[in-house]
Simulated assay, not measured.
Amino acid sequence: MSKPRVTVWNEFRHEREGGAAEECYPEGIHAVLAELFESRGFDVETATLDEPEHGLTEAVLDDTDVLTWWGHAAHEEVADEVVNRVQTRVLDGMGLIVLHSGHFSKIFKRLMGTTCDLKWRNEGERERLWTVEPNHPIARGVGEQVVVPEAEMYGERFDVPAPDELVFTSWFEGGEVFRSGCCYRRGSGRIFYFRPGHETYPIYRQTEIRQILENAVEWAAPENADAPSFGEVPVGPERRD
Protein backbone atom coordinates (compact mmCIF):
# COMPACT_ATOMS: atom_id res chain seq x y z
CA MET A 1 0.00 0.00 0.00
CA SER A 2 1.38 3.43 -0.94
CA LYS A 3 2.12 5.99 1.77
CA PRO A 4 -0.39 8.83 2.25
CA ARG A 5 0.07 12.17 0.53
CA VAL A 6 0.01 14.76 3.31
CA THR A 7 -0.51 18.52 3.11
CA VAL A 8 0.51 20.35 6.30
CA TRP A 9 -1.42 23.60 6.68
CA ASN A 10 -0.28 26.25 9.14
CA GLU A 11 -1.48 29.76 9.83
CA PHE A 12 2.21 30.72 10.24
CA ARG A 13 1.73 34.04 11.98
CA HIS A 14 3.01 33.61 15.56
CA GLU A 15 6.36 32.17 14.45
CA ARG A 16 7.11 35.32 12.41
CA GLU A 17 6.34 37.78 15.21
CA GLY A 18 9.43 37.09 17.32
CA GLY A 19 9.39 35.98 20.93
CA ALA A 20 8.80 32.50 22.29
CA ALA A 21 6.95 31.16 19.25
CA GLU A 22 9.80 32.04 16.89
CA GLU A 23 12.33 30.60 19.32
CA CYS A 24 10.38 27.37 19.57
CA TYR A 25 9.56 26.96 15.87
CA PRO A 26 11.86 29.30 13.92
CA GLU A 27 10.89 27.80 10.55
CA GLY A 28 7.23 27.43 11.49
CA ILE A 29 5.21 24.63 13.02
CA HIS A 30 4.51 23.33 9.52
CA ALA A 31 8.23 22.79 8.93
CA VAL A 32 8.54 20.59 12.02
CA LEU A 33 5.47 18.57 11.10
CA ALA A 34 6.58 18.24 7.48
CA GLU A 35 9.97 16.93 8.64
CA LEU A 36 8.21 14.37 10.84
CA PHE A 37 5.99 13.05 8.07
CA GLU A 38 8.79 13.03 5.51
CA SER A 39 10.92 10.98 7.92
CA ARG A 40 8.11 8.41 7.98
CA GLY A 41 8.13 8.14 4.20
CA PHE A 42 5.00 10.18 3.50
CA ASP A 43 4.75 12.42 0.42
CA VAL A 44 4.52 15.87 2.04
CA GLU A 45 3.65 19.40 0.94
CA THR A 46 3.09 22.50 3.08
CA ALA A 47 0.67 25.40 2.76
CA THR A 48 0.18 28.59 4.79
CA LEU A 49 -2.45 31.25 5.30
CA ASP A 50 -0.76 34.05 3.37
CA GLU A 51 -0.23 32.08 0.16
CA PRO A 52 -2.70 32.60 -2.69
CA GLU A 53 -5.87 30.64 -1.85
CA HIS A 54 -4.08 29.86 1.44
CA GLY A 55 -2.05 27.30 -0.50
CA LEU A 56 -5.13 25.06 -0.76
CA THR A 57 -6.01 25.18 -4.42
CA GLU A 58 -8.24 22.56 -5.98
CA ALA A 59 -5.15 20.94 -7.50
CA VAL A 60 -3.40 20.75 -4.12
CA LEU A 61 -6.41 19.27 -2.37
CA ASP A 62 -7.07 16.80 -5.18
CA ASP A 63 -3.53 15.53 -4.61
CA THR A 64 -3.95 15.29 -0.81
CA ASP A 65 -4.91 12.18 1.14
CA VAL A 66 -4.64 13.79 4.58
CA LEU A 67 -4.70 17.49 5.49
CA THR A 68 -3.35 18.62 8.87
CA TRP A 69 -4.58 21.98 10.19
CA TRP A 70 -2.97 24.35 12.72
CA GLY A 71 -4.45 27.81 13.27
CA HIS A 72 -4.88 30.20 16.18
CA ALA A 73 -5.08 33.97 15.71
CA ALA A 74 -6.49 34.36 12.20
CA HIS A 75 -9.29 31.85 11.81
CA GLU A 76 -11.61 34.47 10.31
CA GLU A 77 -9.09 35.29 7.57
CA VAL A 78 -9.58 31.89 5.98
CA ALA A 79 -11.78 32.43 2.93
CA ASP A 80 -15.15 30.70 2.93
CA GLU A 81 -14.45 29.49 -0.61
CA VAL A 82 -11.45 27.55 0.67
CA VAL A 83 -13.44 26.20 3.63
CA ASN A 84 -16.09 24.95 1.20
CA ARG A 85 -13.40 23.33 -0.91
CA VAL A 86 -11.85 21.53 2.06
CA GLN A 87 -15.25 20.41 3.34
CA THR A 88 -16.11 18.90 -0.03
CA ARG A 89 -12.84 16.97 -0.12
CA VAL A 90 -13.37 15.65 3.41
CA LEU A 91 -16.87 14.46 2.55
CA ASP A 92 -15.40 12.78 -0.53
CA GLY A 93 -12.83 10.91 1.58
CA MET A 94 -9.83 13.13 2.38
CA GLY A 95 -8.63 12.78 5.97
CA LEU A 96 -8.42 15.86 8.22
CA ILE A 97 -6.30 16.19 11.38
CA VAL A 98 -7.15 19.30 13.40
CA LEU A 99 -4.48 20.34 15.88
CA HIS A 100 -4.76 22.20 19.20
CA SER A 101 -6.28 25.68 18.66
CA GLY A 102 -7.56 24.57 15.28
CA HIS A 103 -10.68 23.63 17.25
CA PHE A 104 -11.87 27.19 16.46
CA SER A 105 -11.09 26.96 12.75
CA LYS A 106 -13.91 27.55 10.31
CA ILE A 107 -13.52 24.09 8.81
CA PHE A 108 -13.69 22.24 12.13
CA LYS A 109 -16.70 24.22 13.33
CA ARG A 110 -18.39 23.64 9.98
CA LEU A 111 -17.86 19.89 10.15
CA MET A 112 -18.86 19.63 13.81
CA GLY A 113 -21.89 21.95 13.58
CA THR A 114 -21.21 23.37 17.07
CA THR A 115 -19.28 26.27 18.63
CA CYS A 116 -16.29 24.03 19.48
CA ASP A 117 -15.69 26.30 22.50
CA LEU A 118 -13.88 25.25 25.69
CA LYS A 119 -12.13 26.48 28.83
CA TRP A 120 -8.43 27.39 28.67
CA ARG A 121 -5.51 28.68 30.72
CA ASN A 122 -1.91 29.13 29.62
CA GLU A 123 0.34 28.68 32.65
CA GLY A 124 2.72 26.03 31.32
CA GLU A 125 1.12 23.26 33.37
CA ARG A 126 1.99 19.58 33.18
CA GLU A 127 -0.40 17.53 31.08
CA ARG A 128 -0.96 13.81 31.48
CA LEU A 129 -2.44 12.37 28.29
CA TRP A 130 -4.18 9.09 29.05
CA THR A 131 -4.78 6.45 26.37
CA VAL A 132 -8.37 5.33 26.86
CA GLU A 133 -8.56 3.14 23.73
CA PRO A 134 -5.19 1.32 23.66
CA ASN A 135 -6.24 -0.92 20.75
CA HIS A 136 -7.11 1.97 18.47
CA PRO A 137 -4.70 2.38 15.49
CA ILE A 138 -3.89 5.96 16.55
CA ALA A 139 -2.65 4.67 19.92
CA ARG A 140 -0.24 2.14 18.41
CA GLY A 141 3.09 2.17 20.25
CA VAL A 142 2.08 5.02 22.57
CA GLY A 143 1.62 3.34 25.94
CA GLU A 144 -0.82 4.00 28.76
CA GLN A 145 0.04 7.66 29.23
CA VAL A 146 2.14 10.49 27.84
CA VAL A 147 3.43 13.29 30.06
CA VAL A 148 3.73 16.69 28.39
CA PRO A 149 5.95 18.78 30.72
CA GLU A 150 4.49 22.19 29.76
CA ALA A 151 1.17 22.76 28.06
CA GLU A 152 -1.70 25.18 27.66
CA MET A 153 -4.68 23.84 29.59
CA TYR A 154 -7.86 23.06 27.70
CA GLY A 155 -10.79 22.06 29.92
CA GLU A 156 -14.30 20.72 29.62
CA ARG A 157 -16.87 21.39 28.57
CA PHE A 158 -15.61 21.00 25.02
CA ASP A 159 -18.60 21.91 22.83
CA VAL A 160 -18.28 19.25 20.15
CA PRO A 161 -20.48 16.30 19.24
CA ALA A 162 -19.73 13.09 21.13
CA PRO A 163 -16.78 11.52 19.28
CA ASP A 164 -17.31 8.35 17.31
CA GLU A 165 -14.21 7.14 19.14
CA LEU A 166 -12.34 8.80 22.02
CA VAL A 167 -8.69 7.73 22.01
CA PHE A 168 -7.07 10.12 24.53
CA THR A 169 -8.18 12.08 27.59
CA SER A 170 -6.02 14.73 29.27
CA TRP A 171 -5.58 15.70 32.91
CA PHE A 172 -3.86 18.94 33.93
CA GLU A 173 -2.18 20.12 37.13
CA GLY A 174 -5.11 22.42 37.89
CA GLY A 175 -7.42 19.39 37.98
CA GLU A 176 -9.21 19.91 34.66
CA VAL A 177 -9.80 17.08 32.19
CA PHE A 178 -10.32 17.24 28.44
CA ARG A 179 -11.23 14.98 25.53
CA SER A 180 -7.96 15.33 23.67
CA GLY A 181 -8.11 12.69 20.96
CA CYS A 182 -11.47 12.64 19.17
CA CYS A 183 -12.30 10.66 16.03
CA TYR A 184 -15.17 11.51 13.70
CA ARG A 185 -16.46 10.45 10.33
CA ARG A 186 -18.12 12.91 8.01
CA GLY A 187 -19.26 11.54 4.67
CA SER A 188 -16.44 9.31 3.45
CA GLY A 189 -13.76 11.25 5.37
CA ARG A 190 -12.12 10.62 8.71
CA ILE A 191 -11.37 13.47 11.12
CA PHE A 192 -9.08 13.42 14.16
CA TYR A 193 -8.94 16.29 16.64
CA PHE A 194 -5.74 16.23 18.74
CA ARG A 195 -5.34 18.75 21.55
CA PRO A 196 -1.60 18.78 22.48
CA GLY A 197 0.46 21.41 20.69
CA HIS A 198 1.05 25.11 21.33
CA GLU A 199 3.20 27.64 19.50
CA THR A 200 5.43 28.36 22.52
CA TYR A 201 6.03 24.79 23.74
CA PRO A 202 8.09 22.17 21.84
CA ILE A 203 5.31 19.59 22.01
CA TYR A 204 5.56 18.64 18.33
CA ARG A 205 9.18 17.62 18.93
CA GLN A 206 8.21 15.12 21.65
CA THR A 207 8.67 11.48 20.58
CA GLU A 208 5.31 10.17 21.78
CA ILE A 209 3.38 13.06 20.23
CA ARG A 210 5.12 12.46 16.92
CA GLN A 211 4.18 8.79 17.06
CA ILE A 212 0.53 9.72 17.59
CA LEU A 213 0.58 12.12 14.64
CA GLU A 214 2.13 9.50 12.37
CA ASN A 215 -0.51 6.99 13.44
CA ALA A 216 -3.25 9.56 12.91
CA VAL A 217 -2.21 10.23 9.33
CA GLU A 218 -2.25 6.52 8.53
CA TRP A 219 -5.67 6.13 10.17
CA ALA A 220 -7.19 9.15 8.43
CA ALA A 221 -5.93 8.28 4.95
CA PRO A 222 -8.68 7.22 2.53
CA GLU A 223 -9.29 3.53 2.11
CA ASN A 224 -9.33 1.99 -1.34
CA ALA A 225 -13.07 1.59 -1.53
CA ASP A 226 -15.68 2.20 -4.19
CA ALA A 227 -17.30 5.62 -3.95
CA PRO A 228 -20.97 5.46 -2.90
CA SER A 229 -23.58 6.25 -5.53
CA PHE A 230 -26.57 8.51 -4.99
CA GLY A 231 -29.65 9.73 -6.83
CA GLU A 232 -32.60 8.21 -8.64
CA VAL A 233 -32.18 4.65 -9.89
CA PRO A 234 -34.34 2.54 -12.23
CA VAL A 235 -36.45 -0.33 -10.97
CA GLY A 236 -34.28 -3.43 -10.61
CA PRO A 237 -34.95 -6.65 -12.51
CA GLU A 238 -35.60 -8.51 -9.26
CA ARG A 239 -38.53 -6.34 -8.21
CA ARG A 240 -41.37 -8.33 -6.72
CA ASP A 241 -44.89 -6.96 -6.36
Rank of each mutant, 00 (worst) to 15 (best):
G28N: 02
T7Q: 10
Y201G: 03
V147R: 05
R5S: 15
E176M: 09
A31V: 09
A31N: 12
E214G: 14
E238F: 13
G189I: 01
G19M: 10
R195K: 00
F158H: 08
G189H: 01
F168L: 03
P52C: 06
Y201C: 03
D226H: 10
F104H: 09
A162N: 08
M1T: 13
D92G: 05
A59W: 07
R121T: 12
R190G: 08
Y201N: 05
E223V: 11
N122E: 04
G143F: 03
D65I: 07
F172K: 06
D63F: 11
E77C: 10
G18C: 09
R89G: 00
A79Q: 13
D164A: 04
A151E: 15
A151H: 15
R121M: 07
E45G: 10
L91G: 02
E125Y: 13
S229E: 13
V60I: 15
N135E: 13
V90D: 00
E81H: 10
A227Q: 11
E238N: 10
E152K: 02
Y204F: 04
H54M: 14
Q211C: 03
H75K: 06
F194G: 02
E144Y: 09
A47C: 12
R195V: 02
T68V: 06
S105W: 00
L213S: 04
K106I: 08
D159W: 07
R126V: 11
K3H: 08
S170Q: 00
E125A: 12
T200M: 09
H54R: 08
M112C: 11
F168P: 04
E38N: 11
E199R: 12
V98W: 00
P163K: 04
V177D: 06
S180Q: 01
D159T: 09
G18L: 10
V160M: 05
V132I: 07
E214K: 03
A73T: 14
S105V: 06
T64E: 14
E238Q: 12
P4A: 11
P237S: 13
A216C: 00
F178E: 04
W219D: 02
W171N: 14
C24M: 11
K119F: 14
V32K: 09
G124N: 06
G113F: 10
L99G: 04
R185T: 04
V147S: 06
V160D: 02
E238G: 14
D241I: 05
L61K: 15
E127W: 00
E232T: 06
W171V: 11
D226W: 08
C182R: 02
E45L: 11
V6K: 01
M153N: 04
P163E: 04
E81Y: 06
V32S: 13
F192Q: 02
R157V: 11
D43M: 11
V83C: 12
L99K: 01
G41W: 05
V44T: 07
V78C: 12
N84R: 15
V142M: 04
R40M: 04
G175S: 07
R210Q: 08
G18R: 06
L129D: 02
G181N: 01
V132C: 03
A225N: 10
T200A: 10
H103F: 07
G113Q: 11
V78L: 15
D80C: 09
F168A: 01
H100L: 01
G28A: 05
T200L: 03
V146N: 02
I191W: 02
S39A: 14
S101Q: 03
E150N: 15
H72P: 01
Q87G: 12
D226E: 14
I203G: 00
F42H: 14
